[in-house]
Design a binder for these strands. Structure first.
Length: 236
DNA sequence: TTAGTCAAGTGGCGCC
DNA sequence: GGCGCCACTTGACTAA
């Protein structure tokens, strides 16, 4: 088999040989004694310890040979990861240098970086998905709470509670529960007894089902509550 | 046997 | 038009 210069168009094949131990001698010596597995590129010819020259195959071999998978060594992976941490992309010079250092072809380094970027992106997407799931859960819970509150307020309309005036300690008039037709907010208005001169007016505003999610989402973002007391004079 | 991993192939797209 | 990148796919390999 002729030893040719590195060529990107040659067929790339590797063989994992169980029991093959790295040695300065030819790997095809077939050391079956140990349990070591070393990845061999059948296009590469060893010329010394950890020195491999890429070679081309005969045409008929190329056509018939099955595709073999290259397994990067731990050291190669470590160096590639280290390089990736520094920079997620490589310029041609960096690629060439790294390939030389790792005794790989530039194309293999390039492919590794492409796949590594894809893995990073996938991981990021998975994390974002998890975050959104949790957020959805929290919003659902807030929605449930607010709906309960709306139900309670509706119930108050049916059976108005007795509210004591903070001024006179006497019972106040019945509360009224109204729904604003424009913004569909439920409004409870408690009007003080006529004799209670400093008439107290309390308004509780709750959003309806449709707007709760958005309001809760926004409020959780900005750290405020969707359920708030506002002066009765504040129109919707 | 099967699901998961990963190097490598392929085609499309944008940039210069 | 060549190049680099990306999304998608393929196929070898491994571990459960």
């Amino acid at each position: 088999m002729a030893v040719l210069p590195i060529c990107s168009s040659h067929l790339e094949l590797t063989i994992s040989v169980p029991g093959f131990a790295a040695s300065p001698s030819l790997p095809s010596s077939g050391d079956q004694g140990g349990s070591m597995v070393r990845d061999l590129d059948i296009n590469q010819v060893p010329v010394g310890e950890d020195e491999w020259i890429t070679a081309s195959m005969e045409d008929e071999e190329e056509a018939a040979a099955p595709r073999r998978k290259l397994r990067l060594t731990k050291e190669q992976s470590r160096l590639l990861e280290e390089s990736f941490r520094q920079n997620h992309t490589l310029n041609p010079k960096q690629k060439e240098a790294l390939a030389l250092q790792l005794k790989l072809r530039p194309r293999q380094v390039e492919v590794w970086f492409q796949n590594r970027r894809a893995r990073s992106k996938l991981k990021q997407t998975e994390m974002e998905c998890e975050y959104l799931k949790r957020w959805f859960g929290s919003l659902t819970e807030q929605n449930r709470k607010l709906q309960r509150e709306v139900e309670e307020l509706r119930a108050m309309k049916v059976a108005p509670p007795t509210v004591m005036s903070p001024h006179s300690c006497e019972p106040l008039l019945a509360s009224t529960l109204t729904m604003c037709p424009r913004c569909e907010r439920v409004t409870t208005t408690t009007t003080a007894a006529a004799h209670d001169k400093g008439s107290t007016k309390t308004t509780v505003v709750a959003t309806n089902t449709n707007t709760t999610t958005t309001a809760a989402a926004l409020s959780s973002k900005v750290g405020t509550s969707a359920l708030q007391s506002r002066p009765s004079s504040a129109a919707c």
